[in-house]
Amino acid sequence: MNKPDTSLWDKQRNKIISKKGGWFVGDGVYCHGYNMMDELVGKVSYMQVVMLNATGRLPKRPVADWFEAVHICLSWPDSRIWCNHIGALGGTMRASAVASTVAGVLATDSRSYGIKPLKEGVAFIQAAMVALKGELSVDEIVVNECEKHGGKPYIMGYARPIAKGDERVPAMELVAKNLGFSVGEHLKLAYEIDRILLAQFNEGMNINGYMSAFLSDLHFTSEEVYRICATLVASGVSACYVDMRDRPAETFLPLKCDDIDFQGKPHRTL
């Protein structure tokens, strides 16, 4: 056996080559080419810096303001929501605010809700746009997508779970309008899909579908959206944590022994 080439790793030992920035004591703090104290602090919004760190590009303020608004839309203080529920459980058993909030955020790496479906939503609308430009009609795109799910309208970004309709879409449409954004080709396509699904299935576009199309018009990739939104639910989780942390311990949905329905093997001896 030949001696393996380890030069890739040898070159990286005891050194960090950052493409992002760093702190040089007595000199300054640098972030993607900006001097943080002189060029960013007090001059741009926090969300602009979040996006700079997630994508490597400093966005214009309206884009960051739109993202900030969508963070408000997608995290609310209802402890029935799965990630928030985890925060509340952290509060009731006196875990720290940091641990509980992070635990709730971690839960949103989920196939069912949270941030990961956003990746799928962006991927869908961008693929649909490619199909449209490849001369498929919107009707054909919808039929093809529904066929993958046994004829049902299970398209990521449409047919919201738990409820029909989505109050967050008109809220974000108003935000976009006030910030001066127009409707781009992806959003036009999303509205057309929405119209077809409403007519055929009484199912419409949800906030995922709206976000995915809007951000595709701004040329974000699905991975960039995922990275920007990594802590999307943090504030709602924190709220639910605080609610229970400030009450007597173990009072969040307490369970009697009989509240658990045991369906396993009856008592047996070793």
Binding site: A163, K164, G165, D166, P170, L198, G204, I260, Q263, G264
Partner: peptide, 25 residues
């Protein structure tokens, strides 16, 4: 025109079920 927001009235379980652990009150 936006779709009116209505509940799907999904039926959720009344209780947590498990086959693993039994706690006798």
């Amino acid at each position: 025109k936006h779709q009116k927001v209505t509940s799907r009235n999904d039926v959720f379980a009344d209780k947590i079920t498990t086959r693993i652990w039994e706690e006798v009150p």
